[in-house]
């Protein structure tokens, strides 16, 4: 059988390429790369469009209402659209485009989906409190050597290792 890991790029080469992508983002736009920020913009747009009265009076949405420009026209929205395109192209060329629910044989697809939603929700909440996720706060923050970037990476991975044992059945 073909060794699966061979099909993926060498991690160090991938890392260097990713480093250049981050540098390019700073070089052209002065921005880091990100992930969660795009979802924040989607939520803001949705609430402002559907419940403008509520948004005006909410401390969370107020600044976006006053900016008077659609949050959808943001750097991160376009970047995340790009991620979708880039990943799809790469997977297509590598023959990895396939609809599936990936999970450990020890759990059902349903369990996997429930925990994926829960995990996503926690990431959504945590990224708002921590001002960004693994890429936006962590990777980009470390690229500019900010204390914040290193702190969030230590917190995310530290917490992951702390909780890993309790949820090992989900993965191994």
């Amino acid at each position: 059988m073909e060794d699966k890991s061979k099909k993926y790029m060498n991690p160090y080469i991938a890392g260097v390429l990713l480093g250049f992508v981050i540098m390019a983002a700073f070089f052209f736009s002065g921005e880091g790369i990100g992930g969660s920020g795009a979802f924040k913009d989607i939520v803001k747009t949705t609430v402002i469009d559907l419940a403008p009265k509520y948004a005006e009076n909410s401390n969370y949405f107020k600044s976006a209402v006053e900016a008077n420009e659609s949050p959808m026209k943001s750097w991160l929205i376009f970047e995340v659209l790009g991620v979708l395109i880039g990943a799809a192209i790469s997977a297509a060329f590598a023959g990895r485009l396939k609809l599936k629910i990936e999970h450990s044989p020890k759990i059902s697809s349903k369990t996997r989906i429930i925990f994926a939603i829960l995990g996503g929700a926690l990431f959504g909440i945590g990224s708002q409190l921590g001002r960004g996720c693994t890429s936006g706060a962590g990777l980009s923050g470390m690229a500019v050597m900010s204390v914040s970037g290193f702190l969030v990476v230590v917190a995310i991975f530290g917490s992951g290792y702390l909780f890993a044992w309790f949820f090992r059945k989900l993965w191994i």
Binding site: G35, G126, S159
Partner: peptide, 23 residues
């Protein structure tokens, strides 16, 4: 940042992704 990171770490273990990789 620390508390946000801890919440995200738990999210990582439960969900297996972070926002960028999930997209």
């Amino acid at each position: 940042t620390i508390v946000g990171g801890i919440i995200m770490g738990l999210g990582f273990i439960l969900g297996g992704f972070c926002p960028g990789t999930s997209v």
